[in-house]
């Protein structure tokens, strides 16, 4: 799961930064009076660090651009014709044109809002986010997704929209064709 990878990666990078600070701290006690040679050595290491950062960050920066969730560039995923669902957010409820979705067949959610900004967040049966898009008045955003797993999914609002924002929940079921 992407969230798991992101968490592990972030912790690893934060710890890497922490080690750098801890190392400098531990080596801060004894003074080297002439700063120039130390500085020259440090600049050489910094050049290497720079290229390490380029490789370490540059590669995922480019690779993660290959498959974007945006409608215009996302390839058709899943088999069969596209199921279309219109979703409109209101303070504080969702209106869906259907609440049953066929598994392993692509779905297009056409998401908009009837009043203020909302966030159309899809939670899987384990309450983990699998996809999201903003719901904005006057704009229809198309979210394409294919559900492989059957079960009851929740839509929760992910953009603050006032007093009952946290109660703005809807459900749909992903299953086999009836």
């Amino acid at each position: 799961m992407l969230q798991q990878i992101v968490w592990a990666l972030s912790l690893a990078l934060m710890m890497f930064v922490g080690f750098g600070w801890a190392y400098a701290l531990l080596k801060s006690g004894r003074r080297e009076e002439d700063y120039t040679p130390l500085q020259k050595r440090a600049y050489r290491i910094r050049t290497r660090l720079f290229w390490l950062l380029v490789a370490l960050f540059g590669t995922p920066m480019v690779l993660t651009l290959i498959d974007l969730p945006y409608d215009a560039v996302r390839p058709a995923i899943g088999a069969g014709s596209v199921q279309e669902i219109r979703a409109t957010g209101y303070m504080w409820r969702w209106e869906l044109s259907a609440d049953r979705i066929e598994a392993r067949r692509p779905v297009e959610f056409r998401v908009t809002s009837g009043d203020v900004n909302h966030g159309f967040g899809i939670y899987d049966p384990d309450m983990k986010i699998v996809a999201q898009v903003q719901a904005m008045p006057g704009i229809t955003n198309t979210l394409r997704h294919t559900f492989d797993r059957e079960g009851v999914y929740k839509i929760m609002c992910l953009e603050y929209c006032g007093l009952a924002h946290h109660n703005m929940v809807a459900e749909f079921t992903v299953g086999t064709r009836s």
């Binding site: 992407l2 920066m61 969730p69 699998v130 996809a131 999201q132 953009e159």
Partner: peptide, 11 residues
Amino acid sequence: TIRVNYVMHNT
């Protein structure tokens, strides 16, 4: 990262 934001934005 766009793909990460897709599942972590506004969490």
